[in-house]
Design a protein around this nucleic acid. Structure first.
Lengths: 152, 152
DNA sequence: CCCTATTGATTTGACATTAAAGCAATAGCC
DNA sequence: GGCTATTGCTTTAATGTCAAATCAATAGGG
């Protein structure tokens, strides 16, 4: 952000850090996910990855883990279901819940893909030493649980 | 540059830092922009802010500063134009260019709004000291210009 | 056993986002 | 001048995103 704005020093420091935070997040995400095949989106990858590492979940749980809205998950799961990567199943104990599970082909797909993305993220962050990555994570965590963050 | 195998520890460190980076970016952005009136979006705010601090720009320049696609800018400017915040004007020297400028009401709008958002971002990052904010910015900049970043 | 509140999912409407295709205007080359 | 390439913008198709409204099922209070 080309700030010609001249405010208090605290504000300039915060805005400067914020802009770099945003640019880094966008930049690393875009480049790290460039290894994804063209027929899958970042959001779809996110859902498959959570299902692989957490097992079958209902849509509200997916929304919580991915920090997305419920309506959003409905659409993403729709598209993953069309592609044959996941299946929906109504819970018999409480018919409000829809359990989303990986199909065999979906599991094979994400199992083959995840290591590539993990390696890609590692490569993108390789400009930072291990200690620097730790510091970055620590500062981000502190920043993300700041002033008006919901209590953990 | 041949990429060397870095081992599982390097991967865990990088993924851990990456997840915290993404969560911090989402979290701070969402909360910092909660002060925006509901009739304006974050992207629209971004365009108005750049126009305020840089003066009238053509759409390609806007796209470059905001790191968005050209088609995207077309839509955002469409909506800002409907709201009366900006005007489009064909350049007379080169009729391919469309200069986007703030209207009087648009200028008043963003002039009143920007300090609120700046204060909000400052508040959200107040969990970090000035030195920590500087370190965060430095690490983010280093991370964002990593392995496959385009040459500046 | 009702009435109501809550909860999980879906739908709808509006905006964002990109890639790709298309259009219009300019620039370059012969 | 005229052909071609480039450049800036718009459009289109597909997906994502949220908020709000809606629907279905369950839970609780009386």
């Amino acid at each position: 952000m080309p700030s010609r704005y001249q405010g208090p020093k605290a504000e300039i420091d915060a805005l400067s850090a914020y802009i770099k935070l945003m640019r880094a997040a966008e930049s690393v995400t875009t480049r790290a996910h460039a290894v994804l095949p063209k027929d899958i989106t970042i959001s779809q990858f996110g859902v498959l990855e959570v299902l692989l590492h957490c097992g079958p979940l209902c849509q509200t749980e997916l929304a919580g883990k991915l920090l997305k809205s419920g309506g959003n998950i409905t659409l993403i799961v729709d598209n993953l279901e069309k592609a044959g990567h996941v299946v929906r199943e109504r819970s018999r104990e409480d018919r409000r819940f829809v359990t989303v599970s990986l199909t065999d082909s979906g599991r094979a797909f994400i199992t083959g893909l995840f290591p590539k993305v993990a390696a890609s993220i590692t490569r993108e962050l390789s400009a930072l030493s291990s200690a620097e990555q730790f510091t970055l994570g620590w500062l981000c965590k502190k920043a993300g649980t700041g002033a008006s963050a919901p209590a953990a």
